[in-house]
Design a protein around this nucleic acid. Structure first.
Lengths: 345, 345
DNA sequence: TTGATATTTGACACCGGTGTCATTTTGACG
DNA sequence: CGTCAAAATGACACCGGTGTCAAATATCAA
């Protein structure tokens, strides 16, 4: 009963021969099925350990018609967002035999749904993690259902049934951040809006408006500027808001990039931050720390959201107790840095 | 000869039946093999088109013992770098049936090589793209050779045989950037070094030194500060260099994050940029544009490098002429923005 | 001990492709 | 028109797992 010499990796047949059982029994051990005599299981496990056997994922995928793979579907211009989330997922699946594939898609292409459909029918992953902004598209989620691929949508609000989404309470966090401004005495507070039709943009705006109302201030539409989450739109918004005779003493921008654009304009005009203008952003991107002064912002719990999402999608492959409830909502947190000051008297 | 109704996707057997040939012949058509009668090939292609047949990648991977997948191996703290490179690869493989898997590894773990070995023997990809800094590790490249997995190493210098690496001429580009400084009259120019043992750091330092020598200046070791490519090390370097009585009038930092750190210190001290201090970075990361003033830097042709690397690795699967030589070296370019000024006085 | 039933295990087909090699078809030539 | 080599095609095993269902074994009551 010696180890059969082979060129490649040991297969299930080698293990079966070595443990003197059928390959089907080895398969049962691998998949932790019930109804095996303890002695048999141990014998097989010993053979697996001795040979250093690892199941071939391609063969398994062919037989199961399903890959032991999680797919991260995103169309996110912010690399750090994707990477942070990805790191959370990787942490969750680190000790399993799951793999992660990253699939960027083009939100603006009218072939997007077809692309995703082709990818999912070919690749047949265990599940899909959908990052914003495309997580907000119901047609995408519906496509996954149709193709029988479980999914989890990530977002700034509950986008789906609790077992199909993970959310952060952005609206509340933004409100808390903006109360920093009102508490410091600011009354003319500008707002740079996110792109039209984005749920995340709506949540952030709701938080901003809530803070304004809480402080007993009035919402002034002329203090709102359009934006699309990009630096250039922050520049444009900054120019609009800061060239007014009664310019705001504080501005909340719906993300860090646009906040950086606003700051560019302000510093270029010779304004001091936070002396003449307070600024708050959202994302806690690397930019937030790198710009001067360092930007007060709101941190999305992306790593944790990635972990949760992976657990929701594949908990039973991660050795987790099925019964353990996985929370659906996590809290974004205000990161206080150097761009909020008391209003000049 | 009607289309057989099936629950799932059509298989090679369906195509064979529909075209009235053996499945092996269909396989030949799929793989573009020689020695098929034109009429047969057309009949099969018609059947493929009519049924909308797409080969099952799992089955193919099992039979070939090789996945139609490219793996991006990286341990890069800079998300934008990874994403840019990845986009280049995706562009190259867009019209093929290749897929891209992203595999982050932990450079500091002593199990890294074992991890990679396990991943490659299990996943059996078509090839591996290795991003710096781990592209500089010869043991990793050797491991790929040993496992019979083709690889391409990305770097700031020729790291391997021409068909196994893609490089940018960072040293020259840095020299060109620093000549901007000497040409503007700067004579006391500080340098913030990259991390010890990184080839990219050495190349950038060589470029800096070349520019200094070309200008007939002397290299002053006390104007060099250590760094590790992180923002905090840029802060430390800035504090060291700018608190001297004869502080430099210009600083080249080996990447943008450290340049941002230097600028933080300078602006915090009340210095004006570029009035009192000129700064140049490297990477053209989003930060470079977002900070104020916008940073003059050097752009790595990452997207193009990703494209080239994918072509080198998988040219024959991309419908490219085998004979077409793929270049190995691309040029980094100086991006002039707002942080370089003529020396005062 | 015996039969009935529950528990374990195995034989074999199958997932959807590719490799090997034998067989059939084709075309050139005597 | 027959012969034969070359070209085209097919039969079948195989890649390494899993599902189905039957067979073997264990358990228990009578």
């Amino acid at each position: 009963m010696s180890i059969k010499p082979r060129s490649g990796q040991p297969t299930i047949n080698d293990v079966a021969a070595h443990a003197d059982v059928s390959k089907k029994t080895v398969s049962r051990v691998i998949n932790g099925e019930e109804g095996l005599k303890g002695a048999t299981r141990e014998r097989v496990q010993a053979a697996i350990a001795e040979l250093g056997y690892v199941p071939n994922p391609q063969a398994r995928a062919l037989a199961l018609r399903r890959n032991m793979t999680l797919v991260l579907l995103h169309d996110n211009p912010n690399a750090q967002t994707v990477l942070n989330f990805q790191n959370g997922v990787l942490r969750a699946i680190a000790n399993s035999d799951l793999a992660l594939a990253v699939r960027p898609v083009d939100r603006r292409s009218d072939r997007m749904l077809d692309d995703v459909r082709a990818f999912l029918t070919r690749h047949r992953p265990l599940g899909v993690l959908i990052l914003p902004p495309i997580s907000e598209r119901d047609d995408l989620a519906q496509l996954c259902s149709e193709l029988d691929v479980p999914y989890v949508r990530i977002g700034s609000a509950l986008l789906d049934a609790p077992d199909r989404c993970v959310a952060s309470n952005d609206s509340e966090a933004v409100a808390a951040a903006c109360r920093l401004l009102t508490a410091a005495g600011h009354t003319r507070i500008g707002f740079v809006r996110g792109p039209e039709g984005f749920r995340s943009a709506a949540e952030r705006e709701a938080g901003f408006q809530a803070a304004i109302r809480t402080a007993g201030l009035k919402l002034d539409p002329s203090l709102c500027a359009a934006g699309n989450y990009r630096f250039e739109s922050g520049i444009a918004a900054g120019e609009k808001l800061l060239n007014r005779p009664d310019r705001p003493t504080a501005i909340f921008a719906s993300n860090d990039e646009m906040a950086a654009g606003v700051m560019h304009v302000a510093l270029g005009m010779g304004l001091s931050i936070p002396g003449d203008l307070s600024v708050i952003g959202f994302d806690d991107s690397p930019t937030a720390q790198h710009i001067w002064p360092s930007l007060t912002t709101v941190r999305w719990p992306l790593v944790e959201m990635g972990e949760l999402a992976a657990e929701k999608l594949a908990g039973r492959f991660l050795g987790h107790d099925e019964a353990k409830a996985v929370p659906t909502t996590l809290s974004s947190a205000v990161i206080e840095r150097d761009t909020v000051g008391v209003v000049a008297g």
